[in-house]
Computed example of a mutant assay.
Amino acid sequence: MKRRLRQIFSISAVLLLAIAGLTGCIATPDSVGGDSGAIRIGTLRGQPHLYAPYFMQRFAPEHTTYEIVLFENSPDIKNALASGAIDMGVLGAPAMLSGIAAEQDVQIIASAADGGSGFVGSPQIRTPEELRGKRIGFPAGSSQEIALKLTLRAHGLDPDTDVQLVNLAYSDMASAYTAGRVDAFLSAEMGVSIARQAGAHQIVSPYETPIGATNIILGGNGRFLGEHPDRARDTVQTFARAIDFMKSDRAAWAAGLVETFGLDRAVTDIAIDNVRLRWELDDEYRQRVAELARQMVDFDQLPAAPDMSKVFRTEFLESVSAQR
């Protein structure tokens, strides 16, 4: 199994180089500004649960251009939002909660995707209890970190003393597992599906905690939202239409990921089956985000929870809901 994973990871490494080459045709944080009138939307490279911006232009209002800006992680997207370098961004909810708690000028204006995570490891680890003493990879400051620690606690393991937690970047999870530097990891796609395709198995669902599958949101720069409410409303409506399209045509979603980022189709199909697309900001969802904020405080990701009355701006979704 490990040999097979090494082979797949080697192929993935080549594909990542191809992705880097593709970014010459896509705006990056250092090359924003090709169209001064474009609405700039940040997202992450190669992650299926953050792909909606790539379908937005087909649903754009007349004379509206969306410029995709690629980043390496959600905190970078949040910082770009706060500075006004981008207008909106698809990113992890914890990064936005951290920004709002620090009184940065950002707000959550729609949900984007639940799920997209997995807790996988060696087939020899059959139950969560068998993780005792094992090395577990995780991305610090993420919803996956919260889910991991809550899951370990639920199965009688102390995250601080009963296991060895190894902080890794999303892109390093599969290689760390292949090299034997970790025995398991709780992380996001695509690394989860690369490992599963190679024979790793899901140890336990990462979604059976108080935060559920809460993961990705659409955030906005406060100044842009205040100064351009009509453009913000149209953009959120376009985003929701892109999400609905992806839900209705999963083949187009998978094909887009393969074409844009050079991903393996078989692995991509596994990954998108692990993503629950959404755009709504209903009461249940907002309560789960509030619970995420509480857990972030409990696990020292935040010194204090943000004022939840300042976290969401729901008015931009009203036109979307009215059409349903």
Rank of each mutant, 00 (worst) to 15 (best):
L277S: 00
Q301I: 10
I11S: 12
R278T: 13
T238F: 01
H228Q: 13
R153C: 03
G33M: 13
A213T: 12
A198L: 04
V192W: 11
D307F: 02
G191L: 07
S12A: 15
R250E: 14
F9V: 14
W279V: 04
Q124W: 03
T314H: 01
A113W: 07
A93D: 04
T28K: 09
E145C: 02
Q237H: 14
R286I: 10
A20Q: 15
A252V: 02
P94R: 04
N167H: 13
E62K: 15
D172Y: 03
M246L: 08
A85F: 00
M308W: 01
L148Y: 11
R40W: 11
T260E: 08
D264M: 05
A101D: 03
I203G: 07
L168E: 07
I68M: 09
E62G: 03
Q295V: 10
A13Y: 11
G156R: 12
A169I: 06
A18L: 14
R223D: 08
L5H: 12
R4Y: 14
P61Y: 01
E315M: 05
L81M: 04
R4I: 13
R288P: 04
G199L: 14
A52Y: 03
V236K: 06
A110V: 04
D282Y: 05
S309N: 15
Q7K: 11
M96W: 00
